[in-house]
C-alpha cells in the first residue's frame, strides 16, 4: 500500500523566531533581521520535513499569524477584527470583519509563502489555505451577503488564488476546514460547500488537493466530505472514532490525522498502524496519507519535531505492511 505523510498546517515558530519577533516588538530587532530569521527557520522546517521523507512539503507557514490574516489584510472588503478564540485552544485569531462583498488582490498572497518552497519541485510544494466554509463561518459578516452565497464567493476567490499559485509552481493544495466538522453545514450551506469545492477542484486541474478537517468528529459529515472533488479527506483521530466513519459511496484518498498536537505524549507507531490498517480494510480508500490531527503549532518546536519522528515511523511501518521496528 502506498502511504505518504506530511505536515498539515503551520509548524511552531522556533525559539529563535520567537525571540526575534519579540525583539521587533520591543524595538531591539529590525524587520530585516526578522525576515532573515523567518527564511532561515523556513529552511530548517523544510530540512526536517525532508529528513523525515515527508511529501509534500510545506516550509511550515511560520509567518502566518492565523489562517485568515493574509486574506483579511489584502482582500478589499475586509478589516482585521478582535482577538477571537481559535476553537477549543489557548490560541487566538483576529476575526476578519467583512464590510463589503470580498474581492481579491492579485499577487498579495505570494509574500506570505515560505521562501524556501521556491526551491522545491512543483509537486512537492504544498500550499495550505483556509477552506471556504471555515473562512466564511468564522468571519464577522457585515456585508449583507447571505452565508451560503459567501461560502461560494470565497470559494471562487480562493480558486483564483489557487490558479495564481499554480503559476508560481505550486501543484499541491490543502484546504483547512475545521468548521466543517465542528459545525457541519446543512441545507443551502451544504450546497454552497459543494459548489465552492467544485470551483476549487476545477481550478486545481491536475494539481493534487486535500481537504483537512480537525477539532471535530468527521463521521456525521463524512458523506459530504467524501463527495467533494478533493484528492483526499483528512480526519482528526483525536476526535473521530474511525469505526464510526461510514463507507463512502465512491472511494477516495483518506488522511489520518494521527498525531495529536494537544499533547506532548508521543503516540505509539505500532498502535497507529493497527488503527489505520483496520480502517483501510473497511473503507478501502484509494490512497492513505498520515499527518498531524491539527496544525502542530499548538506545540512548542521541540515536541513538534519529536512528533514528526513518530509520524514518519508510522508511515514507514505501514509501508512495510505494518511489520518491523
Amino acid at each position: 500500500m502506498e502511504v505518504s505523510a506530511s505536515l498539515t498546517g503551520s509548524f511552531p515558530r522556533p525559539e529563535s523566531v520567537v525571540a526575534l519577533t519579540r525583539d521587533l516588538d520591543r524595538g531591539r530587532a529590525t524587520p530585516e533581521q526578522v525576515e532573515a530569521g523567518y527564511r532561515s527557520a523556513e529552511a530548517d522546517v523544510l530540512r526536517i520535513e525532508t529528513e523525515n521523507h515527508l511529501s509534500p512539503r510545506t516550509g511550515g507557514y511560520l509567518r502566518w499569524p492565523d489562517l485568515f490574516r493574509p486574506f483579511a489584510t489584502s482582500w478589499p472588503g475586509f478589516e482585521v477584527g478582535p482577538i477571537t478564540r481559535w476553537f477549543e485552544t489557548n490560541t487566538f485569531y483576529r476575526q476578519p470583519i467583512l464590510k463589503h462583498p470580498p474581492e481579491r488582490t492579485p499577487g498579495a498572497l505570494a509574500r506570505w509563502l515560505p521562501a524556501a518552497n521556491g526551491a522545491l519541485p512543483a509537486a512537492e510544494a504544498r500550499a495550505v489555505l483556509p477552506g471556504p466554509y471555515t473562512f466564511a463561518g468564522l468571519l464577522d459578516n457585515e456585508s449583507g451577503e447571505t452565508f451560503p452565497s459567501l461560502v461560494y464567493r470565497i470559494g471562487r476567490l480562493l480558486a483564483e488564488e489557487l490558479r495564481e499559485l499554480r503559476t508560481l509552481g505550486y501543484a499541491n493544495f490543502q484546504f483547512q476546514e475545521p468548521l466543517l466538522v465542528v459545525r457541519p453545514p446543512e441545507g443551502p450551506a451544504a450546497e454552497s460547500v459543494r459548489a465552492a469545492y467544485t470551483a476549487l477542484g476545477e481550478a486545481a486541474g491536475p494539481a493534487d488537493t486535500a481537504l483537512w478537517t480537525f477539532f471535530g468528529d468527521a463521521s456525521p459529515v463524512f458523506p459530504l466530505l467524501s463527495s467533494l472533488p478533493m484528492g483526499l479527506v483528512g480526519i482528526d483521530l483525536a476526535e473521530t472514532v474511525p469505526e464510526e466513519l461510514p463507507v463512502p459511496a465512491s472511494p477516495r484518498g483518506l488522511g489520518f490525522g494521527c498525531i495529536d498536537p494537544r499533547t506532548t505524549l508521543l503516540e505509539d507507531p505500532v498502535e497507529l498502524v493497527r488503527l489505520v490498517q483496520a480502517t483501510v480494510g473497511r473503507l478501502k480508500p484509494t490512497r492513505v496519507h498520515l499527518g498531524p490531527g491539527a496544525p502542530l503549532d499548538l506545540l512548542p518546536y521541540a515536541p513538534a519535531t519529536r512528533k514528526l519522528g513518530v509520524l514518519a515511523a508510522a508511515r514507514d511501518r505501514l509501508g512495510r505492511g505494518g511489520e518491523g521496528s
Binding site: P12, R13, E15, V18, T21, R22, L24, D25, P65, D66, I83, N90, T91, F92, Y93, R94, T264, D297, L298, L299, P300, Y301, A302, P303
Partner: peptide
C-alpha cells in the same frame, strides 16, 4: 518547561508539561 507556544500574533507563552 517545553518551549514557547504562540497565543496570538507575536505573543507567546512558555508552556510546561
Amino acid at each position: 518547561f517545553e518551549g514557547h507556544v504562540r497565543s496570538f500574533d507575536q505573543k507567546y507563552y512558555l508552556k510546561a508539561a
